[in-house]
Design a protein around this nucleic acid. Structure first.
Length: 270
DNA sequence: CCTGCTACCTGATGGC
DNA sequence: TGCCATCAGGTAGCAG
């Protein structure tokens, strides 16, 4: 579940399922999913803990426990599942968390994501380093202007830098730049104040619209094949190289920026 | 510090 | 069908 809107939708759907429940035990099927923690340590830390909060920071999902937190990062393909009873063995699950009612599953066929316990999530390096969350009140136009000022990076790389803005990824940074009519290669410190304000609006509205889309229909943890329904209906440039621009009819380009594919319309994004 | 490259993984897709 | 290359919504770790 890649970017903040997806994770936020999962948080909201997960909350009523797990809040107030107690973790009785966990079972690690693929130990890579808890690295560098050993399955034994994870189980020991979790057993008997009550889940008191379900929250998100950037692209991380956190279950606050009586002691410490269970921290998920889904990378590209990680997902959560819900079972009333243990599933058939052909369902890919990396870690089972047996609650006092129901079973939470964590699965990532690509094994890039992680599920870890931390006594204090503020000490987890990746979490501690996060910049202002894209959904937070602190993400203001002037905050964005400050982030852009002084950087010689292409603006898209800054939008994707979790230490600057937490929660945007490759899709929604491309989309926000399209809505703001800014070329993703523009050097951040050369973005003018009016453009920066435009970009801020575009980021906020893109993220909000994505969240709406991710919540309807709500994530269905009971179906292992479930994924966010047809996000492409809100996408304007991402993955559309060669297609005509929905705004000006120009031809959408794909370029590499920081090792990632970036999509934009060279005619109306400047 | 900053910056750019690579590793980490598996699966889907498309060309030949 | 098989085989190979390429691509994928991300980040940590490394060398320079």
């Amino acid at each position: 579940m890649p970017e903040a809107p997806e994770v936020e939708a999962v948080v909201r759907a997960l909350r009523p399922l797990v809040n107030g429940r107690t973790i009785r035990a966990c079972r690690v099927i693929h130990p890579v999913a808890t690295k560098p923690q050993s399955p034994g340590d994870l189980g020991k830390a979790l057993r008997g803990n009550r889940i008191s909060e379900v929250t998100r920071r950037g692209k991380y999902l956190l279950l606050k426990l009586s002691r410490g937190s269970l921290v998920f990062h889904f990378k590209f393909d990680g997902q959560l599942l819900w079972f009333d009873r243990p599933p058939a063995r052909d369902v890919h699950v990396d870690v089972f968390f047996f609650l006092d009612r129901g079973i939470l599953g964590y699965a990532d066929p690509r094994h890039l994501g992680r599920a870890n316990w931390a006594v204090d999530p503020d000490k987890v390096p990746g979490l501690r380093a996060l910049g202002v969350d894209v959904f937070s009140r602190g993400f203001t136009a002037s905050a964005l202007t400050n982030i852009l000022s002084g950087s010689r990076h292409p603006v898209k790389l800054l939008l994707m830098d979790q230490k600057k803005i937490a929660g945007l990824g490759n899709i929604y940074s491309s989309e926000a730049l399209w809505h703001a009519r800014l070329d993703p290669r523009r050097i951040a410190r050369r973005v003018k104040p009016a453009e920066s304000r435009r970009l801020h609006k575009a980021i906020v509205s893109t993220a909000r619209r994505a969240l709406e889309c991710c919540c309807h229909p709500a994530p269905d943890f009971r179906n292992p094949d479930w994924w966010f329904a047809d996000l492409s209906r809100i996408l304007r440039v991402y993955g559309q190289d060669g297609q005509p621009c929905r705004r000006c009819g120009g031809r959408i380009n794909r370029i590499q920026l920081g090792g990632r594919s970036s999509y934009f319309c060279p005619r109306c994004q400047r």
